[in-house]
Design a protein around this nucleic acid. Structure first.
Length: 423
RNA sequence: GGAGAGAUGGCAGAGCGGUUGAUUGCACCUGUCUUGAAAACAGGCUUGGGUAAAACCAACGGGGGUUCGAAUCCCUCUCUCUCCGCCA
């Protein structure tokens, strides 16, 4: 959620920058400013009347003590009359606030000034590319054929148990999952991230805090009887740990990581993009989260970007880094780097990580603050990134490392899998 | 699932109708003392709105009510804890 003061003082800038996200904010911004001015007017009026009523109540108390009942009665009547007006003002204040909030909450975060213009993924800026492109024979297979050839992932069985998008990992396939999770967690903790194992269901307040609710309601699985949501990413519970918290300045940056399964309804997805491991309803992911000082958050973003690049390097996967254009960015993000690995048999780039700075957008919703030099609470910046999401990593590992004798496991991972080949 | 208790500042814990944003202790910050630290003493120490700064207003889990006046009384919702049951 954008800060009201900022909108009020930088009206034109807000509109211009949201246009980079292809969001026409003119009407909303005008509305916000006008409702807010009403709100302040009502607030002031109410404050004045309350102040008066407080004074009367005090006098009545004093008169009672002095035994001057008659005078007290007069004042009582005055106060009763006052109350009718304050009641009305209170109602109008809360409805004004509600109206204001409704508009405010639907405004996306401002893209950072570094964000390139553009409408579609084709407009994303390729900022880095590294690694050797594998040369596969013509008979190279896509991962969904390899997984059934070696019997390591069973998509059909998942359909039987649950539905499409819920694969069953078996044997070395299951072990590979476990190996990757541990590999990612060990790397993250070695880099100073504190490991967290959070709940994988969250309440409404948490969903709101990180920006999934109310606008992305349909993307999460909802457990109706208890009104809880299955998390789409560990970002939600981990960031919400710090909801309604005032951190000490020296606590920053907070660095957390965590492994969780992730659940996404992916309503509206279809076609070849959803083949095999490319898009799932349930998948495993290790997430890294940081809460940073506003002055440092872009340094932190670069640090996280380097960290993710480092893991991909260890896994010997060719990858590229995209700086997302305004049109492809998420609702809450101010700047996002996407990491894509090249999947040789499908001959396409697959997104395996997304690293974002949300600036104060999430922290304003969830009141994540720290005390600055003056001891005043101030909103912190939140950042997170996948490090990494498993399915597409598995897809590229399988495809890129396939040989006639089986699939080679990258060296860095062998201590975790306990085997060098899937065959 | 059944029965009971409770929700107050960073934590512990008073207050149960009259000014209380809230006694007190711990923690924390500043100062005096000290070579330094500890101890002792003095002072400070919730958040939000509002203001140039004040004044002022709001908030004692959420919502509603009674009253001139509510942290305190009533209703309601949510959550937590204890015991019983069930159970990895």
């Amino acid at each position: 959620m954008l800060q009201l003061n900022y909108i009020r003082e930088n009206k034109e800038e807000v509109i211009t920058r949201l246009a980079i996200k292809n969001f026409n904010a003119k009407e909303s911004v005008e509305k916000i400013i006008s409702i807010d001015s009403d709100r302040r007017k009502i607030q002031t009026e109410l404050d004045t009347l309350n102040s008066e009523a407080n004074a009367i109540a005090k006098q009545v108390g004093d008169l009672f003590k002095a035994g001057k009942q008659a005078e007290a009665t007069d004042l009582k009547n005055k106060s009763t009359a006052l109350k009718e007006t304050t009641k009305k003002l209170e109602i109008s204040l809360s409805s004004t606030e509600e109206e204001l909030n409704k508009v405010l909450v639907l405004l996306p975060n401002l893209p950072s000034v570094k964000v390139p213009k553009g409408k579609t993924p084709a407009d994303n800026e390729n900022v880095h590319e590294e690694g050797e492109m594998p040369k596969l024979s013509a008979s190279a297979k896509p991962h969904w054929e390899l997984t059934s050839q070696y019997d390591i992932i069973d998509f059909e069985l998942g359909v039987k148990l649950t539905g499409a998008g819920f694969p069953v990992y078996k044997g070395k396939g299951a072990k590979l999952q476990r190996a990757l999770i541990n590999f990612f967690l060990d790397n993250a903790t070695a880099a100073g991230f504190l490991e967290i194992e959070p709940p994988i269901m969250v309440n409404e307040a948490s969903g709101f805090g990180t920006g999934q609710l109310p606008d992305k309601e349909g993307q999460m699985y909802h457990v109706g009887v208890d009104n809880l949501y299955l998390i789409p990413t560990a970002e939600v519970p981990i960031t919400n740990i710090y909801r309604d918290t005032i951190l000490k300045g020296e606590d920053l940056p907070v660095k957390n990581c965590g492994y969780t399964p992730c659940f996404r309804r992916e309503a509206g997805s279809y076609g070849k993009d959803v083949r095999g491991l490319n898009r799932l309803h349930q998948f495993d992911k290790v997430e890294i989260v940081q809460i940073a000082h506003p002055d440092k958050s872009y340094e932190v973003l670069e640090e996280m970007r380097n960290y993710v690049a480092g893991i991909l390097r260890k896994l010997e996967l060719p990858f590229r880094i995209l700086k997302l254009c305004g049109g492809d960015m998420s609702f809450a993000s101010a700047l996002t780097y996407d990491f894509e690995t090249y999947s040789a048999a499908q001959q396409k780039w697959l997104e395996v990580s997304s690293v974002s700075n949300f600036e104060a957008f999430q922290s304003n919703r969830s009141k994540i603050r720290f005390r600055d030099g003056n001891g005043k609470p101030q909103l912190a910046h939140t950042l997170n990134g996948s490090a990494l999401a498993l399915p597409r990593i598995v897809a590229t590992l399988l495809e890129n490392n396939q040989t006639d004798n089986g699939i080679k496991i990258p060296k860095a991972l062998v201590p975790y899998t306990g085997f060098e080949m899937i065959n």
